[in-house]
Design a protein around this nucleic acid. Structure first.
Length: 224
DNA sequence: ACCCAGGGTCATA
DNA sequence: TATGACCATGGG
């Protein structure tokens, strides 16, 4: 079987195993963007606590975050870790968001331009930018994260150490034959499935057969 | 007590 | 280009 075809097969198996995931877990695009920054190298359960803090203060919006003091912002973000860094990154993001005219102005940009704009923000790297492009703007961009690298290394479809951009393009080239909207929907579900699967496999055995696909490993720390 | 999590920046070679 | 230090909380 051609290598490119295997990326389609893996999707099929994941979907048949776990079913649709309804991602991103957020109620609106701005909340997606905030969550994308807060979840950098951080478990989602910790991010949720910070999101709750912002909501309780009625501050999960550009204006409130922009108006808040550094100390106040850091206090809300505390449970998500790296709170001083993330407070600065969230502020950088909000400044950019307002300068670009909010969702209205940003939605009118072509994907390449929007991606370059996001990457110009200090604190927004490739994965965070792609989370935002895919889950807040419905753009057909594939998100590559640590789970993606681990799974596809185990499946023998990548070497694991490739640059982010190399792996992203591998997915986007292999997953073709669809319209932009259909691609966005596929990429959305695919990444969500990879993360879901990744939470239930072990991370200690580099080439654990149980962790490749279908079936959970006895060495997993998080069994369903 | 230790390991890790839905990364990114910056300094250094 | 490619490593390494650093950021910090909460759950297993």
């Amino acid at each position: 079987m051609p290598q490119g075809m295997k990326f389609n097969v893996v999707y099929k198996i994941l979907f048949q195993t776990y079913g649709p995931q309804h991602w991103w877990p957020a109620s609106n695009p701005f909340e997606v963007m905030v969550g994308a920054v807060l979840t950098q190298n951080t478990s989602w359960s910790n991010v949720e606590k910070a999101i709750v803090n912002l909501k309780k203060a009625d501050s999960l919006n550009v204006q409130a975050i922009t108006d808040a003091s550094d100390d106040q912002l850091a206090a809300w973000l505390k449970p998500s870790g790296y709170f001083n860094v993330k407070a600065r990154r969230l502020r950088n993001f909000c400044t950019w968001y307002l300068r670009c005219g909010g969702m209205q102005g940003l939605a009118s940009l072509k994907t390449d331009i929007l991606r370059a704009e996001l990457l110009s923000i200090n604190g927004i790297g490739p994965e965070t930018a792609d989370d935002i492009l895919l889950y807040a703007f419905d753009r057909p961009v594939f998100v590559v994260d640590a789970y993606t690298r681990r799974l596809f290394f185990r499946l023998g479809l990548i070497r694991g150490g490739e640059p982010y951009e190399t792996i992203r393009q591998l997915f986007e080239i292999s997953l073709k034959q669809r319209s932009g909207k259909q691609r966005a929907m596929l990429f959305n579900e695919y990444h969500a499935l990879i993360v879901h699967h990744g939470k239930y496999v072990c991370r200690t055995r580099p080439l654990c057969a149980q962790c490749c696909l279908a079936g959970h490993c006895s060495a997993s720390t998080m069994r369903p």
